[in-house]
């Protein structure tokens, strides 16, 4: 898994996540994002265009991040989900609790 801060756009902290978010890699993902939140980045867009796989461990991390941001009036938007990942979001109902956009451009308008 790769996690990259791809810049900041209109106050939104952009993070691209690539590869596989499973029970082994999800804790690392969660820690990186929480570190960024601790350093003051409370409006985050996750670009998942190159995320190929996510399991319940990855969803758990995303839920932790979403709850953390909500607790401090921040925001989390996901964008560009691959079909396989989108399906897991739909099965779990996560698409109804976390905003999901088709592209990073749309995500910028959302927040």
């Amino acid at each position: 898994m790769e996690i990259e801060n791809t810049g900041k756009d209109n106050g939104r902290f952009m993070v691209a996540v690539r590869g596989r978010m499973d029970a082994v890699t999800a804790p690392e993902f969660e820690k990186r994002i929480l570190d960024w939140i601790d350093s003051g980045e409370t409006h985050i867009i996750l670009d998942l265009e190159e995320l190929e796989y996510i399991s319940s461990a990855g969803l758990r991390s995303i839920l932790t991040i979403a709850k953390n941001l909500k607790g401090q009036q921040g925001s989390l938007v996901l964008c560009a989900l691959q079909d396989a990942v989108k399906e897991i979001f739909e099965i779990s109902g996560f698409n109804t609790i976390i905003p999901v956009c088709g592209s990073s451009e749309a995500a910028l308008k959302e927040t």
């Binding site: 319940s56 758990r60 839920l63 979403a66 779990s92 109902g93 109804t96 609790i97």
Partner: peptide
């Protein structure tokens, strides 16, 4: 799990078995 719960009430337990 309750897959219809709101963010603040949402629990993660049971999701793996559900999948």
């Amino acid at each position: 799990p309750d897959v219809g719960a709101q963010l603040s009430e949402r629990q993660i337990g049971g999701l793996g078995a559900f999948f």
